[in-house]
Amino acid sequence: MGNLTRYVITRILLTIPMVFILLSIVFVVLRIMPGDPVSSMLGGHAPESVIEQKKEELGLNRPIAIQYLDYLWQICRLDLGESMVFKQRVTKAIIEKLPATIELTAFGMIITLFLGILMGAYAADKRRSAQDNLIRLYGIVIFCIPVYWLGLMLQLGFGVWLDILPIAGRTGPRVLASTFEKTGFYVLDTILAKDFFALGDVLIHLVLPSFTLGLVLSGIFVRLTRANMLDVLRADYIVAAEARGIQHRKIVYKYALKNAFIPILTMMGLQIALLMAGAILTETTFSWPGMGRLLLERIYLRDYPTLQGVIIVFALIVATVSLIVDIIYAIVDPRVRY
């Protein structure tokens, strides 16, 4: 396992230049974008002298190269700085919002994988049947639907017409906010507090947002799983297993699925970025107080430090997940060596 450790360390070191490049792009793009924090704070009608004074206060009147180097130095000290709009550390804002996003994406991913993989495997097993065609159609259609539109439709259907599911927020009004002070992951907090009424409330609030997020991406996994399963089901070792009398269902869902899982795993690593992007839209649709909402709000306010901080965190999440995926490879496939 010495090789694995070396591999992990290399990968971690490689994320440093990645974050650096991303950061530089974001830094430049934010400053090219029309508008700046000062005018969004003071509005268009503030006197010139006030604007100048505010700019000097925030250090925005210095040459851009100096601001950039200054920011880099700050990052090197692992400091994300302070919001330019509110009196608030960027780290604090992120820590407050991050659990909500992780909870949403985790549940979204579970739904995606569950639906995508099972439907894909089933379709491959029943290739060219009516069920197969239906599932393939689902895969294409669902992937074409924009996340926000699907979110709105689900809100309309389940929240308004059927009126069985909440359409916004992470909890209902009857749950005390103090329940959630431990980790910020509401599901975890309520379990820790053994408050099962609150847990139920939290889960029911998760249903629509996580299904919205999960359904859209499940289309990719349906198609991917089906294609890989078809390949695997043709393999000699599947016929050989069948010739030994192993039950068909076991062959499909144990033997074949494990083999087809390797490329699916790769896709999972890649899709995590898409999932994050989807989370931003889903959070907006469902008033979900997470990183996506934070990002959107602060874009309106041109809050440079917070935006940069949020994007770094997103990048780190994507990098971490793909690293974890690579490590899982070695566990699933004994042939993989680092």
């Binding site: 393999a235 000699d236 070792y237 494990k258 699933v332 004994p334």
Partner: peptide
């Protein structure tokens, strides 16, 4: 190719 590569 007749033995499943992922199982001992």
């Amino acid at each position: 190719t007749s033995l499943n590569p992922l199982f001992r």
